[in-house]
């Protein structure tokens, strides 16, 4: 299995551990990722609020490079994925748009190279059965709420999962030996950049999600988006201080949880880069596994 790989800007900075864990896990699973050389920013989430054509043209250049290579594109970041998917679909739907875009980017893109969410690739192309056979450190008794965020499964006509009650990440957690916990905030928006640009709007949105996860009885949150991660992890203490709450809720990229279950070293997966300590819970998992082995 081989895909073009589009990490996107956040994965080389604030979301660097998403990039690290994606590459390590893909390697363990035998999936080859060909990083698009000299890829550019897809414009999320500023271009589509400024100019519709620019919003389609920026992702199109990356998709065109993948198309030349004859590969579909695996995309970890939910926001990048949404913008790339929107471009693919508009180009496919309209010959006129295809022509316009090709003129603007000065490359050919016909919509043949598809934008694929990394989660979709793992769950539906590789399959849960194959993944579960490779698990050697199951996430036993780890209660995880899957936080898909708003962009990964929308709009419904383009999605690989249910837009209101998606299941793929929950099933993945189960295949990794963990306990998926149902909750009502799977696709609720975290406010994206609002926490930075207008915190009086962004912070309450983050607060609701963290509180819901806590009330659902989760040990941790699994996410598929670097901006969701920043909001829920980096800002967790800041938001908690504002609302007088202490959530102490580790947040993982789903790829990190996969890496742990596949037996990779948590430090090497980048888990020490989180703001809310997430290594502690991994250590506890390993200790419990050790006790089970000796018992």
């Amino acid at each position: 299995m081989k895909y073009a790989y589009y990490p996107g800007c956040s994965l080389s900075s604030t979301g660097v551990e998403y990039d690290i864990s994606t590459k390590k896990v893909a390697e363990s699973l035998g999936i080859e990722l060909w990083e698009i050389p000299e890829w550019n920013c897809c414009g999320a989430s500023s271009a589509h609020l400024t100019d519709h054509l620019l919003a389609l043209a920026l992702p199109a250049r990356n998709l065109a490079i993948a198309e030349e290579k004859g590969l579909d594109v695996a995309i970890p970041c939910a926001a990048c994925y949404a913008r790339c998917k929107a471009t693919e679909v508009e180009v496919k739907d309209s010959k006129e748009m295809q022509k316009t875009i090709s003129e603007v980017i000065e490359r050919q893109y016909t919509g043949k190279a598809q934008a694929r969410a990394l989660l979709d690739v793992f769950v539906n192309d590789l399959g849960l059965q194959s993944i579960s056979t490779l698990v050697n450190k199951p996430l036993k008794d780890l209660k995880v709420v899957s936080y898909y965020g708003c962009l990964l499964v929308r709009p419904p006509r383009l999605g690989f999962d249910d837009a209101e009650d998606p299941q793929s990440m929950d099933k993945l957690i189960e295949a990794l030996g963990g306990t998926p916990v149902d909750w009502a905030f799977k696709t609720e928006c975290c406010g994206a950049a609002h926490a930075t640009t207008k915190s009086e709007v962004g912070f309450p949105m983050i607060e609701k999600i963290l509180t819901a996860a806590k009330e659902a009885g989760a040990d941790c949150i699994a996410t598929a988006c670097p901006l969701c991660m920043s909001n829920l992890d980096m800002r967790q203490t800041q938001v908690g201080a504002k609302y007088g709450k202490n959530y102490s809720l580790p947040v993982f990229y789903f790829t990190e949880l996969m890496g742990i279950a596949l037996g990779l070293n948590p430090e090497e997966l980048g888990i020490s880069k989180h703001f809310v300590d997430a290594l502690g819970i991994v250590k506890k998992l390993n200790e419990a596994a050790g006790r089970r082995d000796t018992a």
Binding site: S45, H48, L49, C150, L151, R154, P155, P156, A163, E164, T187, C189, G191, A192, H194, K198, V201, M205
Partner: peptide, 11 residues
């Protein structure tokens, strides 16, 4: 301006 483009409404 406050719309976060989350698409819940359109969905």
């Amino acid at each position: 301006w406050l719309c976060a483009s989350c698409d819940t409404c359109s969905t």
